[in-house]
Amino acid sequence: MDFFSAQFLFFVQTLLFASVIFMHLSKKSASVIFLYQVQSLIVACLLLGSALAESAIFPLFVAVVVCAVKVVIAPHFFRRLTRELQLKFSASTYLSGPLTLIILAALTAFTYSHFFAPLSTLNASNARALLLAAAMMLAALFLIVNRKGALSQMIGILSLENAIVAFAFLSGLEQSPALELGVLFDILMWIIIATVFASMVYRQFGSLDVTAMNSLKEE
C-alpha cells in the first residue's frame, strides 16, 4: 500500500482540519493546547514519514526538531503560562457557538468554490486535501479573529502555521530543510517572546483578554 496515497493524505488532512474545528468549540485552555499538540504531532509524523520514505537524514532531523518544538516545547510553555496565570478558561469569543459553526461551514464551502480552483491545480491528485488545507488556514485565521483571549490567538497563529506546512506538503511546495529549520527557529523564538509578553501583559492589565487592552489606543 502506498503510504502517501491521496486517500490517506485526505484522511490526515481531515484530522488536522477537525483539530481546528474542535479548537473553535473548546472552552478550556488545556483542551486547546492539547488539540494543538495533537495537530502538531500529525504534521511532524507527516514530515517524518516523508523523510523515512526518502531515506534522507537532514529532513529526518527537521522532522525531529519539528516534533520537539511543536509537540513538546510549545505546549510546555503554554501549560506553564496557564498554570502561572490561572487561565483555566480562555475561550471567550465574539460570536456564539452556532454562529461560529455556520461561518466555518461557509468558509469551508468557499474554499471548495471555483474561487479556489486554481489552488487545486498545484497537485491534482491531492486536490481535495489541498482545498481542505486551505479551509484549515481560513478556519485558523478565523480562530484568531473570533477569540478574545491572547492564548487562543497565539495558538490560532501556530495552527495557521501548521495549516501552511500541511498545504505546502500536500502541494509539493516543500522548501529545503535548511529553510524549514530557519522557520522553526523563528517559531521557537516567537513562542518564547509571546509567552513572556503575555505574562507581562497579564501583570499590567490583570487579563489576557485583548478587549481589556483598548486603553492602549491613542486618543
Binding site: I144, V145, V210, T211, K217
Partner: peptide, 12 residues
C-alpha cells in the same frame, strides 16, 4: 479601533 481582532479581520 485598537482591537487586535479587528485588525486581523481586515487582513482576513
Amino acid at each position: 479601533c485598537g482591537n487586535v481582532n479587528a485588525y486581523i479581520v481586515y487582513l482576513f
